[in-house]
């Protein structure tokens, strides 16, 4: 197995692990909300903050999960033109789409940093009774975008390497058009 394949495999495993951690966080949130609802109904008292914490979990899913969806080729692409092209044309489109994606993701991640930066500078806390220091959820969220940017960059390089070596099948499984049933 070449070094590129090793790298791709490692990236896949890492993102699968990320997905499992996020999924577990989602389940934990559901259970937390359930306990909160039961507590409120029975009069044992609410744990408080389940609404706020749900939001933070959502932000984590919506940033860390993006790379997972990218590796699984789950981000939706329209194949109106692509499907009419031959293999070379498709490979060119895939590489093009990947590089554009990569560029935009790098830009977004870069623009996300000032949000965390302001929070750290001001010591901002959530405007709630919990007063959560916002650098924690925003730090996790920003790290997710940074991870997405890193994963996208590595995947672009992997795609270019496969293209250079003429390995079309591998190119397709790494950055081609994906589907749910391939998993």
């Amino acid at each position: 197995m070449s070094r590129i394949e090793t790298l791709e495999g490692a990236l896949r495993r890492a993102n699968r692990l990320v997905a499992l951690v996020l999924g577990a966080a989602l389940v934990a949130t559901a259970i937390f909300v359930l306990i909160d609802v039961i507590g409120r109904k029975t009069g044992w008292g609410s744990l408080g903050g389940s609404d706020e914490i749900s939001g933070y979990v959502m932000a984590a899913v919506a940033s860390w999960g993006l790379a997972c969806a990218l590796l699984d080729r789950a981000h939706v692409r329209i194949d109106l033109i692509r499907q009419k092209l031959n293999e070379t044309g498709q490979a060119v489109m895939d590489i093009f789409a990947m590089i554009v994606t990569n560029g935009v993701v790098l830009l977004i991640a870069y623009q996300c940093w000032p949000v965390l930066q302001k929070t750290i500078e001001r010591g901002s806390r959530a405007n709630t009774p919990l007063e959560t220091p916002l650098w924690i959820p925003q730090g996790i969220w920003f790290a997710g975008w940074a991870w997405f940017a890193l994963s996208a960059t590595l995947l672009s390089l992997i795609g270019i390497a496969y293209l250079a070596r003429g390995e079309r099948a591998k190119l397709n499984t790494s950055i081609g058009l994906g589907s749910e049933l391939d998993q």
Binding site: R40, S46, G49, D51, T128, P129
Partner: peptide, 12 residues
């Protein structure tokens, strides 16, 4: 509200 003994609930 919490100081008055009520339970503060945070909903949209």
């Amino acid at each position: 509200l919490e100081a008055l003994g009520a339970e503060g609930i945070n909903i949209a």
